[in-house]
Amino acid sequence: MIDIAGWAPEPRETVEVIDPAPSMALAGVLDAEPPGEELPPLWQWLHFLERPAQRELGADGHPREGRFLPPIPDRSRMFAGGRFRIHQPLRAGDTVTRRDELASTALKNGRSGEMLFVTVRHTFLRGGVEIAVEEQDLVYRSGGAASRPPEVSFQAPEADAPWTSPMAADPVLLFRFSALTYNAHRIHYDETYATEVEGHGGLVVHGPLLAILCLELPRRAGLKVTELSFRARRPVYARQPFVAAGSPDGDLSIEAPGGVTAMTATFA
């Protein structure tokens, strides 16, 4: 049984000067035009990165310990979604403080057993003034992986929406995104581990990458986004065709093979 009694991590602050180089690199990964000095929504994930020593990593590639990592055994981690509210954009060259704190925890029962939902809040400040607030929802499960990987479809999905962007993420793209975000989780680059240990149907496309691809639709349409939310519903695997779909009304999604909606998002 998951037990987090007494787990109450203190808030933490980190200061960083926003370097434009990571945004230039991500634009190359996405085959997109580089942004100007303002960071597009969610591109803050290229900054304030933790860089643990190799000895501090667990078998899955994640750090074994951390301020906001719950103290539960055999912990597996999933990215579930989040929200982002922007008062003023982060800009290249700015000195920004990020204040991190545990916002909430919730224990739920799923098909694979008990799951701990953790929400971490990141507040961004410039000159002491709050400019943006992000909340990330993470799911932790204690115990073994699924008994067998799911069947994976490679049939091209259909999407009926004003905006569509079809693509597939190959292992090279996943490697480059992992490198940009300093994400060593093995489900994104070690197919044997992903399938045989964590029970996936292949290499997993990063949830944050899918969320960024959703928000690329209004960005490329020239719309300014000040608030957004997204929820990861099903994994997408390497080489699977998928479509980022959406409309100016504010609805976005990732449509995967087999009629599966892998992610939903809204923006305003």
Rank of each mutant, 00 (worst) to 15 (best):
D3C: 09
I4N: 05
A5G: 05
W7C: 05
P9N: 03
P9I: 05
P11S: 08
R12I: 00
R12L: 11
T14G: 02
V15M: 11
E16L: 01
P22T: 05
A27C: 06
A32H: 12
A32E: 07
E33R: 08
E33L: 13
E33A: 12
E33Q: 14
E38T: 03
L39E: 11
Q44T: 04
L46N: 09
L46W: 06
L49S: 04
Q54I: 02
R55W: 04
R55M: 10
A59M: 14
H62K: 02
E65Y: 09
G66P: 06
F68T: 03
P71T: 00
M78K: 03
G82C: 13
G82P: 08
F84Y: 08
R85D: 14
I86Y: 00
G93S: 06
D94H: 04
T95G: 00
R98D: 07
L102W: 10
K108A: 15
E114I: 00
M115W: 12
F117M: 08
T119G: 05
H122R: 01
H122E: 01
G127S: 06
G128R: 14
G128L: 11
V129A: 14
I131N: 04
A132T: 02
A132L: 12
E135P: 03
E135A: 01
Q136H: 15
D137N: 12
G144T: 04
A145K: 06
S147W: 12
S147I: 03
P150N: 07
E151A: 13
Q155L: 11
A156P: 07
E158W: 05
A161H: 15
P162S: 08
T164H: 15
S165G: 04
A169H: 05
V172I: 14
L174K: 00
L174M: 13
L174A: 04
L180F: 09
N183A: 10
R186N: 06
H188M: 10
D190Y: 12
E191Q: 14
E191V: 09
T195K: 11
T195Q: 14
G199K: 01
G199H: 00
G201R: 00
G202A: 15
G202Y: 12
G207Q: 08
L209C: 01
L209D: 01
A211Q: 03
C214A: 13
L215W: 04
E216S: 08
G222H: 12
K224H: 04
E227G: 10
F230I: 06
R231L: 09
Y237K: 00
R239N: 13
Q240Y: 06
F242V: 01
F242D: 05
A245T: 03
A245K: 02
G246C: 06
P248E: 15
P248Y: 11
D249N: 11
G250H: 14
L252D: 14
L252R: 13
E255W: 09
V260T: 13
T261L: 09
T261E: 15
T266K: 11
F267M: 03
F267I: 02
